[in-house]
Nucleic acid binder design. Sequence first.
DNA 1: AAACAATTGACCAAATTGGTCGACACGTGT
DNA 2: ACACGTGTCGACCAATTTGGTCAATTGTTT
Lengths: 207, 207
Amino acid sequence: MTTKFENVEVEKQKNILNAALKEFAEKGYEQASTNQIVKDAGIGKGMLFYYFTSKKKLYSYLVDYCIDILEKEYLERVDYSHTDLFERLKVISKVKWGFLVKYPEAINFISALFLKNPDQLESELNKKFQAIQEKWTAVLYEDIDFSLFRDDIDSVKALEVVQWSIHGYEESLKRRFCDQVISEIDYEIYFEEFYEYVDVLKTVFYK
Amino acid sequence: MTTKFENVEVEKQKNILNAALKEFAEKGYEQASTNQIVKDAGIGKGMLFYYFTSKKKLYSYLVDYCIDILEKEYLERVDYSHTDLFERLKVISKVKWGFLVKYPEAINFISALFLKNPDQLESELNKKFQAIQEKWTAVLYEDIDFSLFRDDIDSVKALEVVQWSIHGYEESLKRRFCDQVISEIDYEIYFEEFYEYVDVLKTVFYK
DNA sequence: AAACAATTGACCAAATTGGTCGACACGTGT
DNA sequence: ACACGTGTCGACCAATTTGGTCAATTGTTT
């Protein structure tokens, strides 16, 4: 049997989910306001509790939901065929963009989730967290040919620098587009741009 | 004539300032709670308004205070003698560490300040903001010998990557020490570590 | 038309908000 | 001894907000 919430039209589901994800991501659990969520979602106050019975349960639902889509719509979509780290990074960025367009509010919620002290949650969840953690490192390491890197620098440090750089680029993009709707952005230009940065990294870190 | 607040013992001043900076940095202006501030600062509710008369004025005071120390205790302390970017970065990191130890709660407040839409503040402040902005780019560009960089990559991109990397390292440090008091950390080890990363960057970006 | 599901927003007690103020403690001068 | 001024506290204020409820209303099925 499906829950009441999962029977409403998908569009409305998305509105509610997005409103809630945004509010929790911005303010954290305690500070997040259910009033704000219903206003943002465009539904009456009663409906939120009709669907989720309590703030706590709503939050739990979001956590489950996000872990789910993160695995199925992100981590599992990355293909491992390239052994070249920088080609892999380009693939990942494509997958990530698709994810961002489809679930625009999920990322911030997820990163807030992983940033918090993750030891204080039920063991059930903790397992899922670890699974994701492992999958994420796999995405970055599995079958990568590290012999392509120059020998005069530590490839662990190199990888860190690469990750930090990409994160930095993403943040700068976010700042540039903070007030635009992500799905309406002509992303092709920015893939070009992103690839240029990746190529810089490739040039300097490879033999 | 000095204000009432500036006549209080410096230690207590610091407590109050730190408590307020932390609260505003974490929650933003609206969500910040004066109750939380006085509790954290260990003073009675009345004192905060005795010193600052209102939440708004307190916030203004903090903004002025932070701009002040940012200029005098950070930007103006960087010396420009090195033309080697990476040596300059090491100098900057030393200054920054000193700043962090002395004003542990200021940085987050400041970055939150600069991240927000800065167009909606009085022109007086806006000027100061721009001045800092310029000084900050000067700190990173002034008299830097960019001819040392390899010719096969865009040095603008290189500089961005360097900045992103350093920011990434700082964030990773912050995560490692999030629950420790910053002034009690044996920083020498981490300068060593930091310099290793800087040297990696130097190795890969220089001719 | 009767039963049922979905939906709303006024409403609730409890908590929290920025801010006030009377009480009081601690000098210092008289 | 008294008064005066400066700090200091926290109980208190009205106003707002909190998570959550529920009677009433509108659709939808049967």
